[in-house]
């Protein structure tokens, strides 16, 4: 089976700093993968690399069958990255934002309505400018603008940050639904107990390398990175 993500000795330099210092990783389609590790471990860079937003300084990588050295544009069309920033325009309404990103991805208005409904962005909220939304509402609008893309690979960086309990549940449902539909989900979060119910494969990242990979120990994602096998995954 072709890997959703395959990295071999992947190194990404941010300036002169090796944010990723030789990552070997395979993720199969349909997996839910939790990246865990301390701040500065390289999780965000790893997600951005998989999205085609960071380049490989050395090493090799393929995402959804596309070479990260030569086919990053093809990768980008098929993935969705929820990062620390929302990717929304403050002066447009929620509907205008979601519609813009939907049209950019070639989706139609039915997809927009469906996504807004799923994220409870209906009624007055739909016609509110993003600048006037709370942080949690902005996050929901951001997720809706990704849902319309129908990505094959979800890359979620702290997806629960700033959300209330109800919306956190919505995000969890979204992750389950995406995986059930055959999409691959890679997420980085510090809320490990919450994610445990999704039974993810746990990949520990520290110092820009994969320190441990425990596909079977899905019920204990809280164990610290140093307690994991100190080996790189291949």
């Amino acid at each position: 089976m072709e890997s959703a993500v395959r990295l071999r000795a992947a190194v990404t330099l941010l300036g002169r700093f090796p944010a990723l210092a030789g990552v070997d990783l395979d993720i199969i389609p349909g997996e839910i993968v939790l990246l865990k590790g301390p701040n500065g471990a390289g999780k965000t860079t790893l997600l951005r690399l998989c999205a085609g937003l960071c380049s490989l300084s050395t090493g090799q990588g393929w995402v959804l069958g596309h070479d990260l050295n030569s086919e990053r544009r093809m990768v980008r069309r098929r993935v969705a990255l929820l990062g620390h920033r929302t990717g929304l325009y403050d002066d447009l309404t929620v509907t205008e934002n979601v519609s813009f990103w939907a049209r950019a991805a070639g989706a139609d208005s039915t997809d927009v309505d469906e996504a807004m409904e799923r994220l409870s962005l209906t009624g007055r909220l739909a016609d509110t400018r993003v600048a006037r939304l709370s942080a949690g509402q902005r996050r929901r609008a951001s997720i809706a603008s990704l849902v319309v893309r129908r990505p094959e690979l979800w890359l979620l960086d702290e997806p629960h940050a700033g959300l209330d309990q109800q919306t956190r549940d919505t995000v969890d449902t979204l992750v389950r639904g995406a995986a059930a539909a055959g999409a691959t989900v890679v997420l980085a979060t510090h809320e490990l107990e919450r994610i445990a119910v999704l039974e993810p494969r746990v990949v520990s990242v520290a110092g820009g390398v994969v320190r441990g990979d425990n596909p079977t120990d899905s019920q204990s994602p809280n164990s610290p990175p140093d307690a994991e096998d100190d080996r790189r995954v291949s």
Binding site: R77, G83, L88, Y89, A104
Partner: peptide, 17 residues
């Protein structure tokens, strides 16, 4: 500036346009 304000520039790259 409007594209850079909240990460829309990255989204434009990812949009495939």
């Amino acid at each position: 500036a409007v594209d850079l304000a909240d990460g829309a520039a990255d989204r434009l790259l990812l949009s495939g346009i």
